[in-house]
């Protein structure tokens, strides 16, 4: 589940010999991202608990003169923590991983570019290319979509299927899902842009998820289809704001205009009643 992070006390960590400010308990990878220190990573998503699945974010922790490898997405900042991000061991480890990912997701531009940035342009492993793969041979099985779908959205429409080399992510029985809201959270978190989704008129089609179709609701003002119907209902049920009415009926653009108009009316003593 998503944890509410309470910022810890300010401390100092050392990355590649340079000191940086951080909060105690903060995830080291997020410190690195903030400080623009490059550590490759695929399965880290700030809105989910770190999971340590992709192993790409490995760094070396220096402790009492000894070094040991750790995933920086699960490593918590503590005062005096010292890490190195590009030692020969890390480079070696990373290269093998990139080779494996190149074989696992041979059609992914993201992987190809990321690997190339670290000098890996070919793989010795057998490339797994499957005709008609709903994820376009781009999935690295990081599990972020599965977790976003169940842990953030509570939909649980997709999951891992099978095991070992046959593992894939999809809807059960490869059938259109009744649990999918069409929220697109999976599309947003996927590090390799593997998931295809398309809005076609009054429907959203989750192309990668067995062609699941979700009805969209139209904006009452401009008529544009803008939000999955099921999703708006479930979000609204949780929402408690005077804006509720407008959110239910208007797309974000029209909502903005509407609010602006009301403010002007209010300022000029006009009626703030909804039309």
């Amino acid at each position: 589940m998503i944890q509410q992070e309470i910022p810890g006390k300010p401390i100092t960590v050392t990355i590649n010999g340079k000191e940086y400010r951080a909060n105690e308990g903060e995830i080291l990878l997020s410190v690195a991202i903030r400080e623009k220190i490059e550590i490759p990573h695929l399965c880290y998503e700030a809105s989910l608990d770190p999971y340590g699945a992709c192993r790409l974010c490995m760094v070396e922790v220096v402790r009492k003169g000894k070094r040991e490898m750790a995933t920086s997405c699960t490593l918590r900042a503590a005062d005096g923590l010292e890490v190195l991000t590009d030692t020969p061991e890390i480079v070696k480890h990373r290269s093998i991983l990139f080779e494996l990912y190149l074989a696992e997701a041979p059609k992914s531009d993201v992987i190809r570019d990321m690997a190339a940035r670290y000098g890996v342009t070919r793989t010795r492993f057998l490339k797994r290319i499957e005709q008609g793969d709903p994820l376009g041979n781009k999935c690295v099985l990081c599990g972020l979509c599965v977790r976003a779908c169940s842990e953030i959205m509570g939909a649980g429409a997709i999951n891992f299927i099978n095991r070992g080399p046959y593992t894939v992510v999809n809807t059960p029985y490869y059938a259109p899902s009744r649990d999918c809201f069409g929220c697109g959270a999976c599309v947003r978190v996927c590090p390799t842009n593997a998931i295809e989704m398309e809005d076609a008129g009054a429907e959203r089609v989750m192309k990668s998820w067995s062609g699941t179709r979700v009805p969209l609701s139209p904006c009452e003002c401009c008529g544009r289809y803008y939000a999955p119907r099921e999703l708006s209902a479930s979000v609204l049920a949780r929402l408690d704001t005077p804006l509720k009415e407008e959110i239910a009926r208007l797309c974000p653009e029209c909502r903005g205009k509407h609010i602006a108009r009301e403010e002007i009316l209010a300022k000029h003593g006009g009626s703030a009643k909804h039309a």
Binding site: S150, I161, N162, P172
Partner: peptide, 12 residues
């Protein structure tokens, strides 16, 4: 969720 049950049934 059926996705979870299907995941188990195809795993083992």
């Amino acid at each position: 969720r059926i996705s979870q049950l299907y995941g188990l049934a195809t795993f083992y």
